[in-house]
Design a protein around this nucleic acid. Structure first.
Lengths: 110, 110
DNA sequence: GGACCATATATCGGGACCCGATATATGGTC
DNA sequence: GACCATATATCGGGTCCCGATATATGGTCC
């Protein structure tokens, strides 16, 4: 159980974000990431499956269930509690990074 | 003259952000990036000089001037207009990415 | 019937990039 | 003299992205 990923890549972030609402299978994650980013994020399949393996190993996602639809297998992944925490922390980091350039710093945490 | 970098790395982003106010030399960039991010970003020297070379080649920064202080050379880098545009675009992207998780989507552009 | 595309998973290899280690040099502190 | 901050530069290992490729099904189009 890897507690904290110091650095999260963009692909990893959007994969976790795509899973926040409900478990999805690989192809569904790619499409949802594209939708959520207004088409800006296009996850390559090579990126996705490698990242899913790493996320599973890190305990941020787990294999939810497997289905077979029309002979094609569907493997659904689910985000874990650790994954939710991680993706929210990353969202805060992204927002703070954006503010460095945007100008409204107004740090209130510490 | 590389018009648009589709993808900007975090190190690149903080280097450009550090140069927004005034030209700085390498070591100054490292310190300023650390300050601006409240100590979260620690640029390694190997990262810095490689990134500066790439940014220079891309036309986002230029060598401003060279000074010699106490026998130690100081090489100041300056952000270009293209660099300013690029880092501001990236800030918007980061903010939008953060909002995917934060929840307040409210997309207004298109 | 055949071409093509969307869906769906998986692997491989090239390339980009981060980053610690290492090297070199100066001046101040202990 | 040892050590540290300043300052630049390079090299090599490792991580990760991503296009190409492979395999398989079912629908659309001609």
């Amino acid at each position: 159980m890897v507690s904290s990923m110091t650095k999260m890549t963009e692909a990893t972030y959007f994969i976790l974000a795509a899973l926040l609402e409900a478990p999805l299978h690989g192809y569904g994650i790619i499409k949802r990431a594209g939708d959520q980013s207004a088409g800006r994020v296009k996850l390559a399949v090579g990126t996705l499956y490698g990242a899913l393996d790493r996320l599973t190993e890190a305990g941020l996602v787990v294999l939810d269930r497997e289905e077979v639809v029309d002979g094609r297998p569907r493997r659904y992944y689910r985000i874990t509690e650790d994954g939710v925490v991680a993706v929210r922390q990353e969202a805060v980091r992204l927002q703070q990074a954006a503010r460095v350039v945007t100008g409204q710093i107004a740090v209130m945490g510490a």
